[in-house]
Design a protein around this nucleic acid. Structure first.
Length: 215
DNA sequence: CTCACGATCAGCT
DNA sequence: GCTGATCGTGAGG
């Protein structure tokens, strides 16, 4: 059983790129009714710098109902729906800034994670990979898959990730040595997201759970 | 009200 | 590397 020392609010109030780096190695913990815990180690994170200088942030035109959590206190979960299929979860960092959690290395509750992923899959190669013994690292590889594995949806938007009693929280793991952190431009289908040339995507070198670049 | 568009995923070529 | 699924969101009339 993982210990549940929550991450401090002060950490989440640091500049977003520092926060993205500091989140690597920490735990994302999902506590469901009945007390079951699903836990992953954060291995990939992406910083969004808010309305001032970041056109690709959801907050780039100011506060809207969808992204209101980004303008609330730091350390809360900003969860939004994408394509109606799945959600993505961010750690709010105040003033419209946030860090998107892109990938976890599964630690606890692997059976629950696999069950929830398989429930969404047809009879294709992905199903067979996830069922194979070496397939566990793929369970939460990618921002949408991460949320599917941990049963994160819009109902969790706004929960306090620094509160040890929350259904979703950040807990202390092992910080990652800065030398092990790789920075790259953002990835995704929208070329605009990488157009800044900013190396704002941080991931743990060598992690098998890091989502591969696309396009 | 209408409409264009994704911070994605899965499956196939 | 390319396409379809599928729908919330936000901008504009």
């Amino acid at each position: 059983m993982e210990s549940l020392t929550p991450l401090s609010r002060a950490l989440c109030e640091r500049p977003v790129r520092e926060l993205a780096a500091a989140l690597l190695g920490q735990r994302l913990v999902r506590r469901e009714r009945g007390g079951s815990l699903t836990v992953g180690r954060i291995v990939e994170a992406e910083a969004y710098d808010g309305p001032a200088g970041d056109d690709s942030a959801h907050s780039h035109r100011g506060e809207t109902p969808r992204c209101a959590t980004m303008f609330g206190p730091a350390g809360h979960a900003y969860v939004y729906a994408t394509q109606g299929r799945c959600c993505c979860v961010n750690v709010s960092a105040g003033a419209g800034k946030a860090v998107l959690l892109r990938a976890l290395e599964p630690l606890d509750g692997l059976a629950r994670m696999r069950r929830r992923r398989l429930a969404r899959l047809g009879d294709g190669p992905t199903r067979r990979r996830l069922q194979s013994p070496g397939g566990a690292h793929e369970l939460a590889m990618g921002p949408g898959r991460l949320c599917l594995s941990l049963a994160i949806d819009r109902a969790l938007d706004g929960v306090d990730l620094c509160d040890p009693t929350s259904p979703l929280l950040l807990a202390a793991g092992e910080p990652v040595d800065p030398a092990e952190i790789v920075w790259t431009p953002r990835i995704g289908l929208n070329p605009r997201l990488a157009s800044h040339g900013w190396p704002w995507r941080a991931f743990v070198a060598g992690s098998r759970a890091v989502s591969p670049p696309r396009g």
